[in-house]
Nucleic acid binder design. Sequence first.
DNA 1: GCCAACGTTGGC
DNA 2: GCCAACGTTGGC
Length: 154
Amino acid sequence: MNYWLLKSEPEMFGYRDLEKSPKKTTYWDGVRNYQARNTLRDLMKKGDRCFFYHSNADPTGIAGICEVVKEGYPDFTAFDETHEHYDPKSKADAPTWMMVDVKAVRAFPRVITLAELKGVKGLEKMVLLQRGSRLSVQPVTAREWDIVCKLAGV
DNA sequence: GCCAACGTTGGC
DNA sequence: GCCAACGTTGGC
């Protein structure tokens, strides 16, 4: 199994929104970065687990865990002129952008904040904590995963 | 609201 | 292919 971290702004869509979604599942649309797109398209597999990270939030941090339930397929919001994620460069017969479906697994008993993660031994190389890191879909190692889950008490 | 870091665009 | 300008991300 592989591990990932997904960023979302909770004012737009937070972990609670995922839990309240039908079947606790949603499509992860709106990723408009090629490196993140490649991860969604090529690397994320059914059953993989993801941290759900709240960015631009108070506090910023990891709110819970979700699971990949559908592997990469075209992000159809890019085809819709009326959608805020519309991208005229992406065509239905040659889609530029991809998405996966994720399902809520469990909320952390408390948000594990970015500030807290920064001091933790073993997380020094976590992508999230690298200077200037902006990737919205990023890999997490099994070791990092275990450390964070232990911190959260799950 | 500020601003540093990053990715993309487009002129040359 | 270089690089300046621009737009976006995201912490604070």
